[in-house]
């Protein structure tokens, strides 16, 4: 059995660190794991997606439509964009922040309303939170990614809080460690 987690957001929001953390923690648990990233053009404020897959044996590095057990989204519209990748009844952990894409900024499109409800109507389990506010409470808006990972961690009984913290230590530079630990904790407890 392979567990599939997609981490999606807007280029520059820190999806690489989030997927690195998850990849690390499941590796320490002894799973085979693949993490697929995006570099280059798509990082320039565009829609970005990374895939984390773990289990006994993982072949494909990517997650396809209908395969994701979880989608962790740093932004509301991006969660909606990738919804089709979710297994029926899968879980979405979403930062309720809304960031206007360029077509909305130029007036060529409008930011869709009621996206969280529309997502729920498809049968997805939607767990929305103000991760940006919580990150600011932890000390920096940049820690939004780790707040969401904290929330996500609640869904895994097999990985203890201590194991997550150890992986944070391995993945985050020392000077940001306290901030990120706090952000993770707040996300987990919220």
């Amino acid at each position: 059995m392979v567990t599939n987690v997609m981490v999606v957001g807007v280029g520059g929001q820190g999806s690489l660190l989030a997927s690195k953390l998850l990849g690390h923690v499941v590796m320490t648990k002894g799973y085979d794991v693949k993490v697929s990233e995006v570099h280059g053009m798509s990082q320039r404020g565009g829609s970005v997606v990374t895939y984390v897959r773990f289990g006994e044996k993982v072949y494909s590095p990517v997650i396809d439509k209908g395969e994701a057990d979880y989608i962790i989204s740093f932004e509301t519209l991006e969660a909606a964009r990738y919804l089709e990748f979710l297994k029926p009844g899968g879980r979405v952990i979403v930062n309720a922040q809304e960031i206007d894409p360029m077509p909305v900024i130029t007036g060529a499109a409008t930011y869709p309303e009621g996206l969280l409800d529309k997502m729920k109507e498809t049968g997805a389990q939607v767990d929305a939170m103000d991760a940006l506010d919580i990150a600011c409470e932890a000390g920096s808006p940049k820690a939004t990614n780790i707040v969401l990972m904290g929330r996500f961690s609640k869904y895994f009984d097999g990985i203890t809080e201590e194991e997550w913290m150890k992986s944070l230590e391995a993945c985050v530079p020392a000077k940001f460690l306290e901030l990120n630990k706090k952000a993770f904790q707040l996300g987990r407890d919220n």
């Binding site: 991006e78 964009r81 009844g89 360029m102 869709p112």
Partner: peptide
């Protein structure tokens, strides 16, 4: 799959 939401603005 979960059903797709249509008509979302792109994010280039």
């Amino acid at each position: 799959t979960c059903s797709a939401l249509e008509g979302l603005p792109i994010r280039p």
